[in-house]
């Protein structure tokens, strides 16, 4: 197992009247090369959880292990860990600070001690992985880019560290549909071609259903469901209880299946579902 939590709990501001139990006894595992979706409403503890994966937060209870090593028992260097498990925060364009795109993207690799041609290669890899041309963008100021470009530059800065795992916290929040699709397309390609382990935090069910191999559903700091998207969406009632909705497509297919129709309920793209329903209609006619 790559990442494993054991009874992980976290409380904000313990011992004050403002204390909040953000996570309660979470047990979960992530394997190498998986595409994981973490879903839950705002305040469900999902962002708090992922900040434990690279040691940005220290659990107030339980433990977190990466490759079998307890990261808070001094068995692992936290800075090395953070270069391997990289993290992109919400609205990552707010973290840009350098004068040029090149300098900003190279911040992570420079902190890893890289320089010279290797550094340039890393920056090129980062930018081009996100579909940004190296020569066009390298000398531009990150503050003069469009919102979507800024976000991709921020992501490039993460990828330039060549991590094994990327944790993305609602990476597409506030993006337009085209930018959203493009961004996720790049992430998917990296997952497929580079074998990148991806942990995506979101509350967009439609989006995650198409991407993730495994879902973890959180509600009020507790892990309430886990499994493949098809398995998870079968528990529509539990999901509704968390304040989320299962994708409309899954609901449609499930209702058809409940009425005794022979349809697959594990389809998440409009094209596949349309074909399935079309076939059903044709069979009914004949």
């Amino acid at each position: 197992m790559l990442i494993e939590t054991r009874d992980l709990s976290f409380t904000y501001m313990p011992g004050t009247p403002f204390q909040v139990e953000a996570l309660q006894s979470v047990n979960m595992t992530v394997a190498r090369g998986e595409f994981i979706g973490i879903i839950g409403e705002t305040g469900s503890g999902k962002s708090t959880l992922v900040q434990h994966f690279n040691g940005l937060l220290k659990p107030t209870g339980g433990e977190i292990r990466v490759e079998g090593k307890n990261i808070w028992a001094g068995e692992i260097n936290l800075r090395t860990l953070r270069s391997r498990i990289a993290m992109l925060f919400q609205f990552p364009e707010h973290q840009l600070f350098e004068e040029t795109v090149f300098n900003d993207v190279s911040f992570g690799p420079r902190n890893l001690g890289l320089s010279g041609s290797e550094l340039t290669e890393r920056v090129r890899f980062g930018l081009e992985s996100m579909g940004l041309d190296f020569d066009t963008y390298r000398d531009r100021s990150p503050f003069q880019l469009s919102g979507g470009e800024k976000r991709r530059v921020a992501m490039a800065g993460i990828l330039a560290m060549r991590p094994q795992v990327v944790v993305l916290d609602e990476p597409t929040a506030g993006m337009d549909p085209a930018g959203r699709r493009q961004f996720l397309e790049q992430v998917k390609r990296l997952h497929r071609e580079e074998g990148l382990t991806v942990i995506l935090v979101t509350h967009n069910m439609e989006e995650i259903a198409l991407l993730a191999e495994k879902l973890f559903v959180f509600n009020r700091g507790k892990l309430v469901l886990q499994g493949s998207p098809a398995e998870v969406f079968k528990s529509a009632a539990v999901i509704r209880d968390t304040g989320l909705e299962i994708p409309a497509l899954s609901e449609l297919l499930q209702r058809l299946s409940e009425q005794g129709k022979k349809v697959r309920t594990d389809l998440f793209s409009v094209e596949e579902a349309a074909a399935e329903i079309l076939q059903l209609v044709r069979e009914d006619r004949s």
């Binding site: 900040q51 690279n54 940005l56 800075r79 953070r82 270069s83 990289a86 993290m87 925060f89 919400q90 990552p92 707010h94 973290q95 600070f97 911040f107 992570g108 902190n111 890893l112 800065g157 993460i158 560290m161």
Partner: peptide, 27 residues
């Protein structure tokens, strides 16, 4: 949040002498 985001990119806010630390605060 920004501090964590930069720490995730390997920034170091805790070690070094006072000048180094001041410079490390730029990000």
């Amino acid at each position: 949040k920004i501090r964590k985001a930069q720490m995730a990119r390997g920034a170091d806010f805790e070690s070094g002498n006072i000048f180094r630390r001041a410079r490390n605060l730029v990000p």
